[in-house]
Structure formats: structure tokens, C-alpha cells
């Protein structure tokens, strides 16, 4: 065909569109064996990993059309899409293990803040809103993707075949995300005095949420062989971050950690003030018009 877009213009041919209605369950046709473990714990664990990806994907998507250059709009949107794909698989798995009639959409759109189990690093406002800027955004991408990559490498050996497969696939995607962040940290640190200041301040801000990433949760402790104990990831994480910061000539931030509240944090549904605003934007159409399709 002469015009690459001609094929998209047939009226009424909804199947040409990759977006809109007609999505089926992300796990359609995937083998669904469930290991003999505590189902409630496995559901919660799938929600933890799925919510990390879903909430962070929403944050990254906020940058689309707001990034410093067009290539970066595209890059952040692609990273968001990878994470949204991981989220769909993980929330579908949570729904299947829970077996209570909810699907991935119900879990994404109809749960309230206290039922979300993501780490708080995923939800904080790192810009383009008032909470940050591009430097803060790159700092979070470095911390989040370094941590999740180390986690998924180990999860690829999980006794849950679906978690293992999602992780093995995700490792390849996360490696690109981490490289992208690391290369930007070097550019910002080695650029102007101003760009260096932005990445230093960004790292200081997001660093306050790092300890939470490595705190073993009772749900993880209840799933030996299936879940990864995040405490085991710290050494590798510190080594990778150290390599990037040394290459960039930056010091490790010395930010005071944001403590859990009465022993509870993101994994228990205790979130920061930013979370409610994020969910309001992400969920309001699905909640205002229940069952709507487009």
C-alpha cells in the first residue's frame, strides 16, 4: 500500500486498534497451575509486585508530552508500557489465585488506597507535578529498576510457574530501564552545574524511600520458594548504585529514611499523601461510568 495509514481507516473495523475496548484477560491461554501454598499470601504477593508496576507506570505516563525532549517522552512511555504489561499479568494472576470473581480491571480500578500494596517509592510525586522534576524522575527510575531487576532475577526461579515466567521476561525489560536511568545520571551529573544539582537533589529525595524496599514482609516470609526475600537484594543493589554514582562522581545520599507508621508501610496499605491523588486520576473514569466501554 502507498500510505502506511490506509489500513487503519476502514470504518467499523475495531480490531485494527490496539487500544480501546476488547481487551481480554492478560493471562488468556497461559498455564495456570497454582502451587500448594497459602493462597491468601500468594494473592497478596502478586498484588504487591503488580501494584508496584501499576502505580509506577501511572507516574511515568504523566511525563508523556512533558519530558525535556521528544525522545524522552517516547522512552518514559515505553518504560511505562513495559511495567503496565507486567502489572496486567501480575494482577490477573492475583485475581486467579484469589478466585473471588474479581478480574485485573476490578483490582486496578475498584480498590481503595488501603488495599494497594505497592512500595511508597512507586507512588511519590517526582514530577512533572510540583513534587519534582526530570532529575528526580531519573533518580527514581535508577533506584526502582535496579531494585526490581535484582528481585526479578531471583523470582525467575520461583516455584510459581506464572511468577517465574513473568519475571524471566521482565528481567530483559528492566535491564533496559536501568541502563537508561544510569546513562541519564551520568549525563546530568557531567552536564552543567544546574543539571548536576538537579540529579543530586533528586537522588536525595527518592533515597528516603529505599530502606522500605528491602524490609521483609510477613507475606514474603510465608511463601518460601515462591517469594523472594527482599533483604537478600540489598548487597547487589548497593553495588550497582555504587558503580553508577562513582562513574558520575556523586556521593551516596545521606537522607533520613521515611519510617513505617506503627510498623506498617506501603506493603500494608499505608501510603503517602500523594497516593490518593494518583488513584483519583487513575480510577475516576472507571468509577464514574461503571462498565463503560469505548
Amino acid at each position: 500500500m502507498d500510505n502506511a495509514y490506509d489500513g487503519l481507516t476502514d470504518a467499523g473495523e475495531e480490531k485494527h486498534w490496539a487500544f480501546g475496548t476488547g481487551f481480554t484477560d492478560a493471562l488468556t491461554g497461559v498455564g495456570r497451575d497454582i502451587p500448594a501454598v497459602d493462597r491468601e499470601a500468594l494473592t497478596a504477593y502478586c498484588l504487591m509486585l503488580g501494584d508496584d508496576a501499576l502505580v509506577y507506570s501511572q507516574r511515568l505516563a504523566e511525563w508523556c508530552s512533558r519530558a525535556p525532549e521528544l525522545e524522552e517522552d517516547v522512552a518514559l512511555a515505553n518504560i511505562a508500557l513495559d511495567l503496565l504489561g507486567q502489572a496486567r499479568l501480575l494482577l490477573s494472576r492475583a485475581a486467579e489465585v484469589e478466585d473471588a470473581g474479581r478480574d485485573e480491571d476490578a483490582l486496578a480500578y475498584l480498590r481503595d488506597e488501603r488495599a494497594f500494596r505497592n512500595v511508597r517509592l512507586a507512588e511519590i510525586d517526582c514530577g512533572p507535578g510540583p513534587g519534582g522534576d526530570f532529575g528526580t524522575t531519573i533518580a527514581r527510575l535508577l533506584v526502582f529498576s535496579t531494585w526490581r531487576l535484582a528481585l526479578f532475577q531471583r523470582l525467575a526461579g520461583s516455584a510459581d510457574p506464572v511468577l517465574a515466567a513473568v519475571a524471566a521476561k521482565g528481567v530483559k525489560e528492566l535491564a533496559y530501564h536501568r541502563d537508561h536511568a544510569a546513562q541519564w545520571v551520568l549525563r546530568l551529573a557531567g552536564g552543567t552545574e544546574y543539571s548536576r544539582e538537579r540529579i543530586v537533589e533528586g537522588l536525595a529525595k527518592v533515597w528516603a524511600f529505599t530502606d522500605e524496599l528491602f524490609a521483609t514482609h510477613p507475606v514474603e516470609a510465608a511463601l518460601p520458594g515462591v517469594a523472594v526475600d527482599p533483604a537478600e537484594l540489598r548487597a547487589e543493589f548497593d553495588q550497582v548504585i555504587g558503580t553508577v554514582l562513582t562513574a558520575a562522581g556523586l556521593d551516596l545520599p545521606e537522607t533520613r529514611q521515611v519510617a513505617p507508621l506503627a510498623g506498617q508501610s506501603g506493603r500494608d496499605g499505608i501510603h503517602t499523601e500523594a497516593m490518593g491523588f494518583l488513584l483519583a486520576e487513575m480510577q475516576h473514569i472507571a468509577r464514574s461510568m461503571p462498565g463503560a466501554v469505548w
Binding site: H16, F19, G22, L81, G85, Q86, R88, K169
Partner: peptide, 19 residues
């Protein structure tokens, strides 16, 4: 027929199934 996605977020899976 058995297919596999390229990337986790590949938005074309439903379309491939339908095709």
C-alpha cells in the same frame, strides 16, 4: 495455535489472537 508476546506490555496480543 500457541503464541508468545515479545514484550510484557505488547498491546498487539489481542489483535494477533483475533487475526
Amino acid at each position: 495455535v500457541t503464541i508468545t508476546p515479545t514484550y510484557s506490555g505488547c498491546p498487539a496480543m489481542d489483535e494477533m489472537r483475533a487475526d
